[in-house]
Each structure stands twice: as structure tokens, then as C-alpha cells.
Nucleic acid binder design. Structure first.
Lengths: 206, 206
DNA sequence: GCGCGTATCAAACGAACGTTTGAAGCATAA
DNA sequence: TTATGCTTCAAACGTTCGTTTGATACGCGC
């Protein structure tokens, strides 16, 4: 019987996520990962086959849930009588920013995600496109319905800008430091609020 | 006499920039760099002392010029009778996006820059802050003068968002692919135009 | 008890890493 | 020519990398 709270696989995934966020995929070694996870070095290749596959599993663990949350929030907003632009934006932005509040290392994952974007690694981009492609399409359609006068190409440009700002905000690249008095929760909600207001104005601009 | 167009140091810097953009700082080895630069492996340590110092020099080569361009463009805009918000934004955005059109690898550098942001490497952040800090302050003051009713904290939030979108746009993270018929020059100008319009609306929002 | 599949372990593998070394090349000045 | 200083070179340094191996430990049906 395994009385431990987390299995070997789970502990490896958590440690890998943290160290990939900190040092990058090439920069974090399996020896660092297994040491932080308190497992044997060989455990990675036993449970995941290779380092590259471990990286993929780190993504899958989080993306499936974020994926589902965004879509369900979007559909809930669309079910309303008169959905506002801000609601659609919130459905896109808030689940992502909320991920950084996740109790078990979600904050590390958003930085891993930002790294994945920064790396133009083709296999990783394909992986993200496979997991996100249909989500982005659905959001684009929702925005198009609310902005009927906006050219399609123009919309894609602006959604691209929103994604950039969101990725940036998620990874906390910026110079804005959280004040000691403000909780992480509040900081995240503030960021979402600012981002939504800013983006809705940018999207509506004619 | 050295009849070659580029010195050993310059070729190393160019190859390093390209490979750092492609594989990251940890992912690109000095053997790859020196091989691409067609110089001996030992040349890096001879001319730069270490890999870490080579990374710093890759940044310095570009940042000094970008720095100067942004400030001179900003001051030219401020010298006008009635500077518009869009002009200040252009002074911030256009030199950065134009860097990606630089004949000698500027396009690679902007991706290196995006990587540097994604990596939360403290020494690198300090380096960037040392090189950019006073520039950002000057821009913030210029924006504040044009948006007198905007709260200071609010302004910082929004400038942060602009920086994120710019970094994102510079590195060409997005899904928007340049059409074959559109030149790089035109693509860059389009990106700047969209970004400026979007950001000015976001900044003006009350 | 025994046998069997899963999981973990210490140890080692070959390859690639950043760095160092000492000799060789090659201009310029004496 | 010889001497000098900067640069380049092949080769090796010791370390760390991802991965593999074969032995050992554990849990469970028989």
C-alpha cells in the first residue's frame, strides 16, 4: 500500500514543473528534478520514457483543465441573453490568470507556459496548437459575433495582441510588484480587471 | 591585415545571437556557436572570457542603439507643439519593432530578448533594468503629462501591459503569419500601427 | 511458503558540456 | 633576422548530461 500523499509520478511532475519554470527545459537537469522530487534518477525514464516526454506530460496535466474551464465559462457567457464583450474576455483571461493561484504549483506552470511561447520549438508549438487550436477558434467566433463591423483579419490581429498581453501578465514579467498588503488572490483579480478593461477598449476601437 | 568583412568577435556575436534565439542560452552550446561562426572553440573564452559574458555582450551590442533611438525619437516628439499620445507610443514601439528588420540579425535578437524576459534570470533582469530603467521612467513621465487624469498606479499597470504586448509582437509569438505578398518591412509597420492604435485606446480608457 | 510483475535502487554508460593548455601562426618593430 | 604580442589551433581537462543496466525490494495471488 502506498500511504504517501503523492505518487512518484506526481512528485516528478511537480518538481519538473517548478524547475522548468526556474531554469528552462534545457537548463533543468533530470538530476535536479529527481533530487527535488526525492526519487531515484532512473525514475524519470522508467515512468516517462524520456525527458522530452516528461515535458509534454507537464503540459498535459494543466492544459486539459484550463482548456475545459475556458470553454465552459465561454459557453456560460454565451448562454446569457446579452453577453458583453467583457464577459467573453473574462472567459478567456480569468481561468488563465487563476491558474497562477492554483494551490499545487500552477504559478510555476504559467511561467513554464511563457517559456514554451518564448521557445519557438516546433514540436511544442504543435502540441499547444493541438490543445488550444479549437478553443481559440471558438473564442474568435464569439468575439466576431459581438464585433460585427470589425474586419476578420483585424480581429485576429487584436486577439493576438490580447494573447500576448495575457501571456505576459500571467508570467508576471512586468515591473509591477505586488504590495505586501495585497494578497495573491487580489493581485490576480486586479490584473484580470485591468487586462479586461484595456483589451475591451482595444477590441472595440474602430 | 584582416581582409575579412567580420572579425572573429563579430562572427561569434552574430552566431551566438542566432543560436540563443533558436535554442535558448542553456540550449545553445559553445561548440554550436563557434562552429556556426567558423572559428575555433577556444575563441569564445579567449575573446569573451566565459559563456555568461558572451551572453551579456550579445545584449549590449543591440540595447545601446535601441536605447538611444527610443529616447531621441521621444524627445523629437516632445519638441513638437502638441505631441499626441500616439507619437509617444510610436517612439516606444517603432524602434523596437524596427530592430526586427535590422539587416544583421536584429530579427534574431528580438527573440533573444523575449527569451530573456521569459527567463526570470535575476542577473539578466538587472542587466536589462540597468540599460532600460531610465528610458522607461522618461516614457512614463511623457505619458503622465498627456494623461493628467490617469492615476499613476493605473498608468504603470497599463504601460506594463503595453510592454507585454510589444515583447510578444516583437518575438512574433502569435498565430498571425505574414502573407507571402507582404514584405517584412510592411508587416512590421502594420504590427506597429495595430499595436499603437490598440494601446492608445487602452491607455485613454477612463 | 513460492512465483511474478511492478517499482526502486546504486552504478555505470557514452556523449556532450564549458573551460584550459601549450604549441603554432603571423603580423609588426627593432 | 630575430623578438614580441596578439590570435588561432588541436587536444585534452574534469564535469555533467540523458539514458541504460542488473540487482534488489515490495505487494499480492496462489
Amino acid at each position: 500500500m502506498n500511504t504517501m500523499q503523492f505518487s512518484t509520478k506526481e512528485r516528478i511532475l511537480g518538481a519538473a514543473e517548478m524547475l522548468f519554470a526556474q531554469h528552462g527545459f534545457a537548463g533543468a537537469s533530470l538530476r535536479q528534478v529527481t533530487s527535488a522530487a526525492n526519487v531515484n534518477l532512473a525514475a524519470v525514464n522508467y515512468h516517462f520514457g524520456s525527458k522530452e516526454n516528461l515535458i509534454n506530460e507537464v503540459f498535459r496535466r494543466r492544459l486539459d483543465e484550463l482548456n475545459a474551464q475556458r470553454l465552459s465559462t465561454l459557453r456560460a457567457a454565451q448562454a446569457e441573453a446579452n453577453p458583453r464583450l467583457e464577459d467573453i474576455l473574462a472567459a478567456f483571461i480569468k481561468p488563465a490568470l487563476a491558474l497562477s493561484l492554483d494551490r499545487n504549483g500552477g504559478g510555476a506552470f504559467v511561467r513554464v507556459l511563457a517559456r514554451a511561447y518564448a521557445e519557438h520549438n516546433e514540436s511544442l508549438r504543435k502540441f499547444l496548437s493541438d490543445n488550444y487550436g479549437h478553443v481559440l477558434k471558438e473564442f474568435a467566433a464569439a468575439f466576431a459575433a459581438l464585433l460585427p463591423t470589425l474586419d476578420k483579419q483585424e480581429l485576429y490581429w487584436r486577439l493576438d495582441i490580447v494573447s500576448g498581453a495575457l501571456t505576459y501578465a500571467m508570467a508576471d514579467f512586468g515591473v509591477i510588484k505586488r504590495r505586501g498588503a495585497v494578497s495573491e488572490q487580489a493581485h490576480c483579480e486586479l490584473a484580470a480587471e485591468h487586462l479586461i478593461k484595456f483589451a475591451s477598449a482595444g477590441l472595440r476601437e474602430r
